[in-house]
Design a binder for these strands. Sequence first.
DNA 1: TTGTCATTTATTGTTAACAATATTTGATAA
DNA 2: TTATCAAATATTGTTAACAATAAATGACAA
Lengths: 231, 231
Amino acid sequence: MKDSPEDLIVNAILDAIAEQRLPAGTKLGEQALSDLFSCNRANVRRALASLAAQQVVELRPNRGAFVMTPSPKEARDIFQARRAIERTIARHASGQASPDDIAFLRGNILEEAAARRAGDKPAELRASRQFHMRIAQIAGNLVLERFLSELTMRSTLILGLYSPTGSSSCAEDEHDRIVDALEAGSTDELVRLADEHLRHLEAGLNFDEPPAAPMSLQEQLMVPRSTPSAK
Amino acid sequence: MKDSPEDLIVNAILDAIAEQRLPAGTKLGEQALSDLFSCNRANVRRALASLAAQQVVELRPNRGAFVMTPSPKEARDIFQARRAIERTIARHASGQASPDDIAFLRGNILEEAAARRAGDKPAELRASRQFHMRIAQIAGNLVLERFLSELTMRSTLILGLYSPTGSSSCAEDEHDRIVDALEAGSTDELVRLADEHLRHLEAGLNFDEPPAAPMSLQEQLMVPRSTPSAK
DNA sequence: TTGTCATTTATTGTTAACAATATTTGATAA
DNA sequence: TTATCAAATATTGTTAACAATAAATGACAA
């Protein structure tokens, strides 16, 4: 029912990364975090170790912890893996969606579109991520769900680094057609759409200009979410 | 060049699990580990946090850390995920194997067979795991490689729990045919063989009788390997 | 003997102090 | 002004002591 301080820190950082409030390269100081979450440094340390195991944080000895900065090669690997996993998820989710699932996904598409029009990038990213994760839930494989969770996190870092500003997140109409295929249970079509969707995302990347600079912490971590996340 | 004490602990535990010297459910006491590796408990704690993030260790609050005991449902998810990932790996590895790779794999098959005849289960498991991981390396995707590493680890736990003693690891002739297909670059055949191979492994499981009891630590962690592992 | 409960022991969780290492600052010289 | 270097500062790494909790022990009664 209640979370340990370690889980609290881990989730706060993951959320912040998922919503691009914490860009790649940001330093995650132990003092700063233990102050923010009013706990001792031991908990912070364990949290950072967990995040490092998930490859979203880089641990440089005697230097501290930093939000991971994916290289172009890593970006390629991550999107390749994502295609493999989301295709599998699509195959297993096909025809398994309940009416609630479909309603959630359709609502989510509207939410994302609204956020985009409002220029609320964090909300847009959160919605888009929830879309993909909900389909993973429908597929019903916790292992694949966890893998995808990690990959979407890292994808967000990649988009923040290599995406010509504005072109980032997913195309809405693609999400639309994905829900259609999911509802209709047309498996092959669904898998094809999922694959294509990710290829489009990847195609929007530009590795020519080098990444931008990092920034501070406090204000970025502490932004509360506008919508409560699905349990 | 040198590993931090944390990495040392993590790798020792992972190796021990991969070779079935540490069965599911074993308690990993902080004192015991800090004594074994002659370091302070803080390092042990971080190591256990990393392992927990990789799902090979379970962290029960106020109780300690235990080697994860996969449920039958988790076992199903893990093998499903493994099939998805190893199929992808097979597809990308096909035709990419260097002569060194092929030589390594053929040698590995002999090694595994010898270990089996000698009744050396740890060596057999190590060889079998190396076979799968080497193909992952050939595929050249570090993300998929890491995922597979985690999944093979957890698979070993599953085999230790639910495998009618003796029927565990892989059939040799299947490995043989996989190398043939890999060398020939016949992609579809290779993918088919990989999938089939994993299905056979999964089919050998028996979830009827409940898991056995755990055991102590020291002797199991500290067994040195007979063959130095590939770098 | 067996079951229950208080006491003792061991283990995990938390905190603070100290040491080792980077980083920053500021002075000096070219 | 710019570069270099030493001192000062801040941060990470390590250790030990203490508190909180769970497990083990043993006495007592049925």
